[in-house]
Design a protein around this nucleic acid. Structure first.
Lengths: 237, 237
DNA sequence: ACATGTCTTGCGGGAACCCGCAACAAGTCT
DNA sequence: AGACTTGTTGCGGGTTCCCGCAAGACATGT
């Protein structure tokens, strides 16, 4: 069994390597790439069936690399291994994981035992495994019914890029008024108004982006990805 | 000489400990705190004269901890040791470093030799030392004359919180029109307009926040800090 | 079939925003 | 001192945004 580690932090990489060889005796070779770009090349070139992938890396982040890998070899098993439990990452992963693919998501703060367990479950057994911490955090943000559905999330991305209502409507094939309705529910779910008890008049659009970032609903990587998608859409218009 | 490491990542901490004892034989004791809160307590309680401080930590980040430490003991020498070269951090540090204090800023990607050099220069010699990489990045963003002055930066923070022009004017003691002038130059310097060649109509406010985040002029920690300051200002109004 | 709930869409108006124009103050250069 | 740059402020108007209201579309339940 050939396993690829994609991890730009040197210390984490060597720790991971130790854990890998301890937990999975069936591993015959361990490869190491230090950014997303090299990682995806290596995974597609070499006959790699299992990958452990860091999420935040300089050149190309883990989600983008994973998408490319899965696009060509959806049977690849990928364990994401990350510092943070941002909803943005969890949502990004959910967007790209193919039907029936094995994957997992573990935090770097997890215990060694936990990591080894996840390595075995995902890379060897082909299970799906998401760290409890991540699910917990995800729910705590999503209090009563605060979870954004896909349609709202898309509008949030467009808003975050700075698009105007008119353009969002065109891009998402909605009427102007519908876009504004989505924005209203966004403002509601992100808690735009209920900040300070006094009724401070906020600029709702900016405040929405602020809240989305602070609650880790989206992050900078999300913004950059959304920008690229938007530019592509603009070309074919 | 008593040195305190404030670092929540276990691997980085042990690497740092090694580098410390290699580079500084005059160190008699090394303490270790794993978040900003504990770090600042320890620095103020124990007779600590030198600190190595991580920037992004869970409970209280490095800048806040450093501010508290310097507020009581400005002679403390602090070397910041961080993953990223965000302008937001560099600016945050510049805001809090007292007159004549020794400090430094090194990236975790720096070589071991470089780290040891910085440890010696800052903690022992009391020099000021900033990683070349950080200065380089700072300039590349600041192309022709893109650097924000303090006044513009403050308005950016208020904008980022979602405040309206009127409130910003009140808070910063400017007329409404002056605030709008600041915003104009902000839009200019952040490159709000020159995105895609076509003249896409953007919502400038949101776009400004987007650009500020993507260029690492501000980050989420900045937003959270600004929010706290704003709430405090609101109370005494 | 009828009621009820959710979603979409148009209309319209008040508020906020963007920004050109111009007057004025303060500091700089020659 | 006089010319010039830079920053502040008011005014006014065009645009965008926020959102209440109400009418229609569709689904679900009784």
């Amino acid at each position: 069994m050939r396993v690829l580690m994609v991890e730009d932090d040197h210390f984490h990489a060597s720790y991971l390597q130790d854990a890998l060889s301890e937990a999975l005796p069936e591993v015959t070779e361990i490869f190491h790439a230090e950014d997303g770009e090299k990682g995806q090349d290596e995974a597609l070139q070499g006959r790699i069936s299992a990958v452990v992938m860091d999420l935040q890396m300089g050149h190309r982040n883990g989600i983008e690399a994973a998408r490319s890998i899965w696009a060509q070899r959806p049977e690849t098993r990928i364990l994401f291994w990350s510092n943070y439990a941002d909803e943005a990452y969890q949502r990004g992963i959910a967007d790209i994981v193919p039907e029936d693919s094995a994957y997992g998501y573990v935090l770097k703060t997890a215990s060694r035992e936990n990591l080894k367990l996840a390595l075995r479950a995902v890379l060897v057994e082909g299970q799906i495994m998401v760290d409890r911490e991540i699910l917990r955090l995800q729910r705590s943000n999503a209090g009563p019914r605060n979870r954004l559905d896909d349609s709202e999330f898309n509008v949030l991305l467009d808003l975050a890029l700075g698009l105007q209502d008119r353009l969002i409507a065109e891009r998402r094939n909605m009427s102007l008024r519908t876009v504004q309705n989505r924005l209203l529910s966004l403002y509601d779910k992100l808690g735009v108004d209920l900040s300070v008890e006094d009724q401070i008049p906020f600029n709702k659009r900016v405040r929405a982006l602020n809240r989305a970032m602070v609650t880790r609903t989206i992050n900078v990587a999300t913004l950059e990805a959304a920008q690229r998608e938007f530019e592509e859409w603009m070309r074919g218009r």
